[in-house]
Design a binder for these strands. Structure first.
Length: 573
RNA sequence: CGGAGUGUGGCGCAGUUGGUAGCGCGGGUCGUUUGGGACGAUCAGGUCGCAGGUUCGAAUCCUGUCACUCCGACCA
């Protein structure tokens, strides 16, 4: 492609709407344009990157037997009714002219299971792995960060069908390995972590996180063993022994206006770890109290499991006032207005003489020790893990934290969907059994944005060569110099013959503008045709090695570039 | 859905106590330039998000509404 003909409207200034660096550079480099919140058009450069990533995923999934299909964006409501997912809040819904209800596809378990239940009837037809790369629609409560969290985005979604746990395990692992290869080939440092399956259910599941400073998730990994988990999911080992300090007399102290942990700490001049937070929740409609140390966060998914409820949410202010007898901010486990089940985090088995809300306005109670001053109904692991916690796996190491962007999530679904939808097969012994499923998601557009988050500098994007829109740019330094133009054109043709993705920078612009734009859009290899031509040489540089230019004889150039591309690609495997 | 913020030429912004909109970049044309976002001249481009109200007069004040961004909740 010639830059003079390429549609890539670059921007000199950062659009106000863009906060994240990937969002800024995608807009500035002319890769995408926004249409509405979380909805984007891809321009030629952006689409080329998108397609390169898609192709890498295809190659890796095809390698273990994946077969590409294409399902509709329009999904009839009845299909989602079968699994109860027509009530999912992020669905975009619409009706046809006959008032029949449809949803826009947000993931396709039901659609693919419908295909399979009508076609797969015997164990001999499995294993089967079907996938698609398709636009997904989700009415996210808060789209953000450009392509990081959109309402319309591209997802690879694969679905596996098997007749035994062993076979499911084999394909799950094959997928796991393939995802690793995809991210490595895309030049991304990633971590596969244990995660919360959310409402999609199933047993085993892993998230693939690209590690970057701006990631929206926190991952924790052990400094000693291989344990890694999403911070929301990471378990905390139970303290081996209960060690409460010697209880002292409990008293109520005045803390006017101090509602929050920070305010109480500032007022009483104590550390947050000396406080117990009492959080009033509604578990399946009934109020319960959750206790965690003042410097910790209650982890709702864990709490749901410990309580054994279907759903738990924070209680509203009216409920808090009713059950505690005090305004919000002064709840405590001692002297509640209504007796509540009290769930306490395991960590509170240690320490003692904590400060808690006094269940009266503008007052807290000091010297409170669990199971001395109040009775704990149930102990459990209900707080979110943080860096420094002990590893739940090896119990020797400690957890360290890192930020990541979730780019893939894979699940062993088991029979969750096949039971709901009666997708059954006949086994070798003639039994009718539900098919064992797995589902595997990979965010293509999010991977694209993550690659920029991970690879950029002050001048723009630094694409890994495997997913760069073009591998090589040829900058012609003077469009009025016929020798330069002719030499550049010749190189351009020769490289194209070698199947190199090359962009000829032949615009009638000053050289500085061309350099700036090629850096902004992140072309990995640059050839400069200019002054060196007099001695039969051009200059070659790598985008990732700022400022290092090597003179290469024209006669050797094509070979040199082909080898350089191979070398750059092999760095990523 | 709660909290905060922003809407003024394509982009980034200014606009005072209310007096009828301006700057930089970008774009067109001409000329000079041409190895790191050039210079001069000249031209074009704006329902000030939208609606209603106050006023002799509204980008500016009031009410409503929409959109976008960020923090949180949520995230199948």
């Amino acid at each position: 492609m010639k830059a003079s003909q390429l549609f890539f409207p670059t921007l000199r200034e950062v659009p106000r709407e863009a906060e994240l660096i990937s969002h800024q550079l995608l807009l500035r480099g002319g890769f995408v344009r926004s249409v509405a919140a979380g909805v984007y058009s891809y321009l030629p450069l952006g689409w080329r990157v998108h397609e390169k990533i898609s192709q890498i995923v295809r190659e890796e999934v095809n390698a273990f037997g994946g077969q590409e299909i294409h399902m509709p964006v329009l999904v009839p409501k009845e299909l989602l009714d079968e699994t109860g997912r027509s009530a999912v809040p992020v669905l975009f819904g619409l009706k046809d002219r006959n008032q029949r209800e449809f949803f826009l596809g947000f993931t396709h378990e039901e659609v693919v299971t419908d295909i399979v239940r009508n076609t797969v009837h015997s164990w001999k037809q499995m294993p089967l792995y079907l996938y698609q790369i398709q636009t997904k629609e989700r009415d996210e409560p808060r789209p953000r960060g450009g392509l990081i969290r959109g309402r319309e985005f591209t997802m690879f979604d694969g679905y596996s069908f098997d007749y035994s746990e062993e076979k499911l395990d084999v394909i799950y692992r094959a997928n796991y390995t393939a995802y690793g290869r995809v991210f490595r080939r895309c030049g991304l440092e990633y971590l596969a972590v244990e995660a919360d399956p959310g409402a999609i259910g199933g047993s085993e599941n892993h998230e693939f996180m690209v590690l970057t400073e701006n990631g929206e998730d926190t991952v924790l990994r052990c400094d000693t063993c291989t344990y890694a988990a999403n911070a929301e999911r990471a378990e905390i080992p139970e303290p081996t022994e209960i060690v409460h300090s010697q209880p002292v007399a409990s008293e109520v102290v005045s803390t006017p206006g101090a509602h929050t942990v920070d305010e109480v700490c500032a007022f009483l001049k104590v550390e947050a770890s000396q406080l117990i937070k009492t959080i009033i929740c509604m578990a399946d409609g009934k109020p319960v109290a959750a206790l965690v140390r003042g410097d910790r966060d209650l982890n709702l998914p864990k709490f749901v499991r410990v309580v054994g409820a279907k759903s738990v949410e924070l209680a509203d202010a009216a409920t808090v006032i009713r059950v505690t007898g005090a305004p919000v901010g002064f709840a405590g486990p001692v002297g509640l207005a209504e007796p509540l089940p009290i769930y306490a985090d395991n960590e509170l088995k240690q320490g003692g003489n904590y400060i808690v809300g006094a269940n009266q306005a503008d007052a807290h109670r000091t010297g409170v020790t669990p199971d001395h001053d109040f009775r704990v109904t149930t102990w459990g692991d209900i707080r979110t893990a943080v860096a420094g916690d002990k590893c739940p796996r090896c119990e020797e190491g400690h957890l360290t934290d890192a930020r990541g962007i979730e780019v893939g999530h894979i699940f062993k679904l088991g029979t969750k969907y096949s039971k709901d939808m009666q997708a059954v097969y006949q086994s070798e012994t003639g039994e009718k059994l539900p098919i064992l499923m797995g589902c595997y998601g990979l965010g293509v557009s999010r991977t694209l944005a993550s690659a920029i988050e991970a690879h950029h500098d002050e001048n723009g994007i630094v694409w890994p060569i495997t997913i760069a829109p073009y591998e090589v740019s040829i900058v012609l330094t003077n469009m009025k110099d016929e020798a330069i133009v002719a030499a550049g054109q010749r190189l351009y043709s020769e490289l194209r013959e070698q199947k190199v993705d090359v962009l000829l920078e032949d615009r009638e612009e000053r050289t500085g503008v061309k350099f700036k734009d090629m850096e902004l859009i992140g072309i990995p290899i640059q050839i400069v045709v200019g002054k060196g031509l007099a001695t039969g040489e051009v200059e070659v540089s790598l985008r990732r090695e700022k400022g290092i230019r090597t003179a290469v004889p024209l006669t050797d150039l094509v070979n040199h570039i082909v080898q350089l591309i191979e070398a750059e690609k092999s760095r990523l495997l």
